[in-house]
């Protein structure tokens, strides 16, 4: 009998610990300065909204804020797929002050990413829409999160939320330079194809339409690649045409616009140095506002 009591004690302790632990993790996530925590906490004000996957991180917020004198929010994340971005941005529009301009790096339409979608479980309690997306893409993870609340926080998103508990995430950008090996190896790289599909392009179209309905100015760009790598992307033009057809918006192609090897962290990502130089090009071209050129005077 005594032994059975210990078994019950274990079950109760596991359950209680899981719930208490889950609650603590929830509070930590809420109090974080991480971009998604700020979005779901509400009342966030950002005039410029940047969207992308890891390549979208090159929209380096501190530089834009300093140069343009506007508040910014970058919701980019490594491997972020457009369907997830669409859901988060719709939540953002509902919970926060609407931005005036949204800049999207359209190369994020190149993949679906079920594991990252399931990684956003810490925020599912704040959004029915996000919960549904997780349920569709990662049902095991969705139901697992119902069983164990700690399991909801078994992901990198929560770890980042912890990391940004008491610090801003606006400075998040790679700071390394490509090593010589990588520079040399570009010759051996085979052709690179941007793969997309109807589902992803529809998500982008829906996002653009939602923004337009809110009278938000949307700009689509292709951020820079290391030029010898960009030359190996054989279907970039087709991809841009598809995006333009679907969204009825022009895509500003900056894939080859920057060529200083020191500004790249790898073939697909600019480092901090490169990002600042690239953002200056965007400002010069009027894609981004400067203190002199305010948003209203930018080209459509």
């Amino acid at each position: 009998m005594k032994k059975v009591v210990w078994v019950f004690a274990l079950i109760i302790l596991v359950f209680l610990g899981d719930r208490v632990g889950g609650w603590v993790c929830e509070k930590l996530t809420e109090n974080s300065q991480f971009r998604y925590s700020r979005i779901y906490n509400g009342n966030l004000e950002a005039e410029l909204l940047f969207v992308g996957n890891s390549r979208g991180l090159m929209f380096y917020q501190p530089h834009v804020e300093e140069t343009a004198g506007l508040s910014t929010l970058n919701i980019s994340y490594n491997g972020m797929p457009i369907d997830l971005a669409n859901v988060i941005i719709q939540d953002h529009f509902e919970k926060n002050v609407l931005p005036k301009t949204m800049l999207i790096d359209v190369t994020m339409c190149d993949r679906q990413n079920q594991s990252l979608i399931s990684g956003f479980s810490p925020y599912r309690a704040y959004s029915e829409r996000l919960g549904q997306l997780i349920k569709q893409n990662a049902p095991k993870s969705y139901y697992g999160g119902g069983l164990s609340h700690l399991f909801l926080y078994n992901n990198e998103i929560f770890q980042r939320a912890l990391y940004y508990l008491n610090k801003s995430d606006e400075d998040w950008l790679i700071d390394r330079e490509m090593n010589q090996n990588l520079v040399d190896l570009i010759k051996a790289e085979k052709e690179y194809i941007i793969t997309t599909n109807d589902y992803l392009l529809n998500s982008l179209t829906e996002l653009v339409q939602t923004a337009k309905n809110h009278e938000i100015d949307v700009k689509l760009v292709v951020n820079p690649y290391y030029p010898p790598f960009a030359a190996k992307i054989t279907n970039l033009e087709d991809f841009i045409n598809q995006v333009e057809d679907r969204t009825s918006l022009k895509v500003y192609d900056y894939s080859m616009a920057y060529n200083n090897v020191k500004g790249f962290g790898d073939y697909q990502h600019l480092n901090k140095f490169g990002s600042i130089e690239y953002l200056n090009i965007l400002i010069e071209d009027g894609i981004l506002p400067s203190k002199q050129k305010k948003l209203s005077s930018l080209p459509n």
């Binding site: 210990w6 004690a9 302790l13 164990s148």
Partner: peptide
Amino acid sequence: NPVFRVVSFAAIIWLIALFGTF
């Protein structure tokens, strides 16, 4: 020690829930 046992078993289960790859 049954108390140690119950707590350590529970702790391992929590750690698996928080860090496990399934």
